[in-house]
Simulated assay, not measured.
Amino acid sequence: MALSDEERRRLEKLEQELASSDPDLYRTLQSGAPRTNRREAAATVWGALALIGAFTLVIVGIAAELIIVGAVGFLLMVAAANWLLRGYGPQGGHKESP
Rank of each mutant, 00 (worst) to 15 (best):
E17T: 09
D24S: 01
A80R: 06
E65A: 12
W46H: 13
T36I: 11
L85W: 12
A19K: 13
G53W: 04
V78L: 14
L76I: 01
R10K: 14
P23N: 00
D5V: 15
Y88E: 00
L84N: 06
E96H: 11
L85V: 06
L14S: 12
E6R: 15
Q91K: 08
G53S: 05
R38S: 11
I59V: 10
A43N: 07
G70D: 02
P98Q: 11
T36Q: 10
M77F: 15
R9K: 15
L29W: 01
Y88L: 07
I68G: 07
A71N: 07
Y26E: 00
S21T: 09
W83K: 11
T44E: 05
F55Q: 02
P34F: 06
L51G: 06
L84H: 14
I67F: 11
A33P: 08
R10D: 10
S20Q: 14
A81P: 01
S21D: 04
I52K: 08
F74L: 15
A64Q: 07
K95V: 05
A48K: 04
E15W: 02
I68Y: 09
E17N: 14
P23G: 00
K95P: 02
N37S: 13
N82M: 13
G70F: 09
L76T: 02
G92S: 05
L14M: 14
L25G: 00
L14Y: 14
L57W: 01
A42R: 15
I52T: 04
V58P: 02
A54L: 06
V58F: 07
S31Q: 13
I59G: 01
A81Q: 03
S4P: 13
G92E: 03
I68N: 01
G70M: 13
H94P: 05
Q30G: 01
F55Y: 06
L85T: 08
R8C: 12
R86A: 09
D22Q: 08
